[in-house]
């Protein structure tokens, strides 16, 4: 189980950020070749990311690259570069249908074979940025075994919906739909970026909401948001204490060869144990919520 609370956006054309961002404790790094890169810089950003992916400093970190859509002149070149460079996850922007994922998968497999990379080792992530994407979310999430998660991207979505970003009401259905699709398909779900890095309270309010809804994590645009997010996702002390007892009981049952786990005379079933393991994992990563 990989912890994916924070996914930090890094503009692919910014050499300084690419060559220093590994000092941050984000769970995943998302190198962006799409909207953060001007048309003029597409080629050189692709090469910067190609080499950054191979940096030893990123070796143990999860590396995601947001490529340009395959319908642009850049998408296939981006894909060629990042699959060859050993990217963990390719993030496809503007995913509207399961076919978009299938098309991407075909290309990825071709490149994997061409460069001698294990077929299937490149995971995919679909960003949903439109009304049709939201409606097709389940099909998208199930479109390929390579899909590790789906993400809602708010900027294009609200435009497609003929509204604008506000208090979150405008994203309510999309968040729920994407989240349900992800959970039904057993993949991760990622929430939109929060644009105003100076509005800490607003950010925390949004984080609290998406955590309670059940999102796996959130895309971030500023490293200052990482610790805030991780702390908000960290369990409270009593949650940790309870999770320890659950996990200990499960271990005990395992040791004794019992088929049933019980705690304080009550039966504990598998989802509760999985939940407890997640709680301990988050606590191990960033302690108890402050």
């Amino acid at each position: 189980m990989t912890l994916r609370r924070s996914m930090l956006f890094l503009p692919g054309s910014n050499a300084a950020m690419l060559s220093t961002a590994f000092v941050f404790e984000a769970d995943s790094f998302m190198f962006d070749l799409e909207d953060a890169v001007s048309l003029r810089e597409k080629d050189t950003a692709r090469l910067l990311v190609y080499h950054a992916l191979k940096m030893p400093a990123y070796a143990k970190r999860e590396k995601v690259v947001r490529i340009n859509p395959l319908s642009t002149p850049f998408g296939r070149l981006d894909l060629e570069a990042v699959v060859r460079a050993g990217v963990d996850v390719v993030r496809l922007p503007k995913t509207d249908t399961a076919e978009d994922v299938a098309d991407l998968e075909t290309e990825v497999e071709r490149i994997e074979r061409a460069c001698g990379r294990e077929v299937g080792s490149t995971r995919l992530m679909a960003a949903i940025e439109s009304a049709s994407g939201v409606v097709n979310a389940l099909a998208i999430a199930k479109a390929s075994p390579r899909i590790m998660g789906i993400a809602l991207a708010g900027f294009d979505y609200v435009m497609d919906m003929q509204t604008q970003r506000g208090d979150g009401t405008e994203l309510f259905y999309a968040r729920c739909a994407v989240l349900h699709a992800a959970r039904a398909a057993r993949v991760d779900a990622f929430d939109v970026v929060f644009g105003d890095v100076n509005d800490e309270a607003g950010f925390l309010k949004e984080v609290d909401l998406i955590k309670r809804l059940g999102f796996t994590g959130k895309s971030l645009i500023n490293p200052r948001q990482i610790e805030l997010l991780h702390n908000a996702f960290a369990p409270a002390q009593e949650e940790v204490d309870y999770a320890r007892r659950v996990v200990a009981a499960a271990a005990q049952a395992e040791e004794k060869g019992l088929g049933v786990v019980s705690l304080n005379g009550k039966m504990v079933d598998a989802p509760v144990i999985a939940m407890a393991e997640r709680v301990l994992q988050r606590a191990a990563a960033s302690g108890v919520r402050q």
Binding site: L8, F9, L10, P11, N14, M17, A21, A36, G195, D196, V197, N198, I221, N222, P223
Partner: peptide, 8 residues
């Protein structure tokens, strides 16, 4: 990692 409203 843009600075939101401070963008040039």
């Amino acid at each position: 990692m843009s600075e939101g409203g401070d963008e040039l």
